[in-house]
Nucleic acid binder design. Structure first.
Length: 217
DNA sequence: CGACCGATTGACT
DNA sequence: GTCAATCGGTCGG
């Protein structure tokens, strides 16, 4: 694979070794408050094995959906068939289907019954960028990185995450999270969550400043 | 059951 | 900037 892709903000040679040197995020990591988990997920590696291929990306944009009292959360009106996974202990993948065609992936956080999660909104490709390109329907990686893995549904399509992955343990072989290089505090920006009309005062979207894969500026 | 709608995206003015 | 696609989840009758 080409090691020097102009649009990448960090040299791949600096991130790839994480696959063998870094540790999976622990149940303790996931059991904390969704806002804390969201911020701490920035810089971590999302690793996906599918069809014999390794795909991975550095998380660059997330949104927190704390369960209690958040009218924007899928868990706000209680447990249903769709959101049942949100009420399990932190550390599972919650995938939902929306707009009749898209999937979005969340990391369940907190304790059993809490109903909290973190939406994964964008990753920066680290391994398997060609496979992601194919999955997204491009012949070649687009010049604008956002078209590849920027946006919750694009991220899912690039990594092959579908409803079938709903409920999976995030420490498994198929999909897991690795501790990454923690970004400096000054490199993180917060803003209101995208597409949410209620609770606009809560700045629960976090992203890495100036990263070319972040979905919106 | 029927109606409404969405944590989005891509195509288009 | 605008807007349609497309369909499972959810809720009201």
């Amino acid at each position: 694979m080409e090691d020097r892709v102009p649009q990448l903000s960090v040299p791949l040679r600096g991130l790839r070794p994480l696959h063998r040197t870094s540790r999976k995020l622990s149940p303790r990591f996931f059991s904390r408050d969704a806002v804390e988990v969201a911020r701490d997920l920035l810089g971590c590696l999302l690793v996906r094995r599918i069809g014999g291929t390794l795909l991975s990306g550095r998380i660059v944009e997330v949104e927190a959906y704390p369960g209690a009292g958040d009218p924007a959360s899928h868990s706000f009106n209680g447990r249903t068939d769709r959101n049942a996974v949100m009420f399990e202990p932190g550390g599972r993948l919650y995938v939902y289907f929306t707009y009749g065609m898209h999937c979005c992936a969340n990391v369940v956080t907190g304790r059993r019954g809490e109903g909290a999660a973190v939406l994964l909104r964008a990753v920066e490709p680290v391994a398997g960028i060609e496979a992601m390109t194919v999955r997204r329907g491009f012949d070649a990686a687009p010049a604008d990185g956002r078209l590849l893995t920027g946006g919750p549904a694009r991220l899912c399509q690039a990594l092959g995450i579908t409803l079938r992955d709903n409920g999976k343990d995030l420490r498994g072989d198929e999909i897991h999270l690795l501790r990454g290089v923690r970004p400096p505090e000054g490199a993180i920006a917060s803003s209101p969550r995208i597409g949410i009309s209620r609770a606009k005062g809560r700045r629960w979207r976090f992203h890495l400043k100036a990263n070319p894969f972040v979905s919106r500026r």
